[in-house]
């Protein structure tokens, strides 16, 4: 069996295989619902309704998509340069810590807008610095960043746990491990008064647009793609490969940290250990489903968020565990990756 590249894939080919992957995902999901003892069509209908069936549901989905857009962008930016940042979770928490620190500090005397800007900036810088360590170890000593960034997630969680039991513990928190709440001025306001969607979502859309412009319009974007596609040719051509990797890391880490900023300042208002149910890891799925395209990240983040939100509400109505959401996104990814490969190659025997 051989894979043979298709020179100019037709539209039917480019749309057909992803559609087939989606169809197969639905088929497998139905089978899972059956196993759980529910009516598959009703289950899928409930998921859809829970994700987008009402204004409330839709806004909930967009809220849930917000951190996923940030972590998805962080992963997409890094993976484009073949910098395997598996540590978006750690960067997210780093950003969240600084959001609370700056948000509850003496700086809260500032007007709301500059104060929020400072919080976001501090968060992004922290995330950037967190990824700087692994990337320097990689460029200097050839240490595999998959290992370092992954392990950093655990260090970070333990560190947050320490902070919440110690220096950052809320004295009024009745003993719960969570931080002080942000004052009202240090919170991201809602985009439209009365609707539960905060400015973090708008910020995520702006970030996606900015990343897209960076990738297509700037020398840095060109360098990142060159380094990712062929590091040897990039180095030979005179592209400063290590500097490009460092810049990519700063961008990626900063984006992941903004997920923490947006969740704390927009939604939770305090730091706790359940701030992220694995947004950093889910960001990898989001980025892969989007083929690392920054605008695609928005679409796939909304899709993945919809599946989770929909499954939550479905499990309340039907008696199917919410774990079906994890399985659904995983199955979608497993079908989508080969489907996307098949849009560009055909399989031949001999």
């Amino acid at each position: 069996m051989r894979l043979e590249p298709v020179a100019n894939p037709s539209l039917a080919r480019r749309m057909g295989y992803p559609a087939l992957a989606l169809g197969l995902t639905v088929v497998v999901a139905s089978a899972l619902a059956l196993i759980a003892g529910a009516d598959p069509l009703a289950t899928l209908g409930l998921i859809l309704k829970g994700a987008a069936g009402s204004k409330f549901a839709l806004l909930e989905t967009l809220n849930r998509a917000t951190p996923l857009i940030f972590t998805g962008l962080a992963v997409a930016v890094a993976f484009r340069a073949r910098l395997w940042n598996i540590g978006a979770e750690a960067q997210l928490y780093g950003g969240a810590i600084l959001t609370v620190v700056v948000g509850t500090s003496a700086l809260s005397a500032l007007p709301a807008v500059p104060h929020l800007l400072l919080m976001g900036l501090a968060a992004a810088l922290t995330g950037a610095l967190i990824l700087l360590g692994p990337v320097i170890l990689k460029t200097r000593f050839g240490v595999d960043e998959v290992v370092t960034t992954l392990l950093f997630n655990f260090i970070m969680l333990l560190f947050v746990s320490y902070l919440l039991e110690g220096p950052m513990k809320d004295p009024m928190g009745m003993g719960w491990p969570k931080s002080e709440r942000l004052p009202g001025d240090a919170r991201l306001p809602r985009i439209v008064e009365g609707l539960r969607l905060h400015w973090g979502f708008a910020l995520a859309l702006i970030a996606a647009l900015a990343v897209w412009i960076i990738q297509t319009r700037t020398t840095l974007g060109y360098e990142i793609r060159a380094v990712g596609q062929n590091i040897r040719a990039a180095r030979f051509a005179g592209i400063p490969v290590n500097a490009v990797l460092v810049k990519t890391a700063l961008l990626s880490g900063g984006l992941a940290a903004l997920a923490g900023f947006s969740e704390v300042a927009g939604l939770k208002a305090h730091l706790s250990l359940d701030l992220s149910p694995g947004f950093g890891y889910t960001g990898i799925i989001v980025a892969m489903l989007a083929l690392l395209h920054p605008l695609g990240v928005v679409v796939s983040a909304v899709f993945v968020a919809g599946v989770f939100v929909g499954a939550d509400s479905m499990s309340r109505a039907a008696d199917v565990p919410t774990y079906i959401a994890d399985m659904l996104t995983a199955i979608a990814l497993l079908f989508m990756v080969p489907a996307i490969l098949l849009t560009r190659v055909r399989v031949r025997r001999g």
């Binding site: 060109y222 793609r225 060159a226 596609q229 062929n230 040897r232 040719a233 990039a234 030979f236 051509a237 005179g238 592209i239």
Partner: peptide, 18 residues
């Protein structure tokens, strides 16, 4: 193939590599 050009870059992108 591997040092002089980037296979999945188009001709424009390969022309300006240096």
């Amino acid at each position: 193939h591997h040092t002089g050009t980037i296979a999945d870059f188009d001709l424009t992108e390969n022309t300006i590599l240096e």
